[in-house]
Amino acid sequence: MEKKMDENNRRMSSIERDLIKKSKEADKSKQFVLRLYIAGMTAQSSKAIKNITQICEDNLKGRYDLQIIDIYQQPALAKGEQIIAAPTLIKKLPLPLRKFIGNMANKEKILVGLDIQPKD
């Protein structure tokens, strides 16, 4: 009886492992388009830039497009992108669209929000 359960478990986890492996492969092929909107070079802005660059380099190396935009220079963009807070990171691709506000200090939240598995 117990043996059977064990076997079952092993089979389940192998299926799961398979799924995770496949999804990771799919993840890796996804291209990320990210836009970071900052309001001038404040301490928060540079923190945010540093943090998000780090996260991208660590997890999305080679398959992300991160642009940093100063909304002081382009106020029209703030209106068009419905930005109220600074810094704001917008994940344009892959869909769905997500916004992150703050200095990007909460790494876990960003990873979950970007829907990427942290590198183990």
Partner: peptide
């Protein structure tokens, strides 16, 4: 759509 990840301000609103 919005996730908070640390400190921020409402400069975007001010600029608009």
């Amino acid at each position: 759509e919005i996730e908070e990840t640390g400190e921020y301000n409402l400069e975007g609103l001010f600029i608009r």
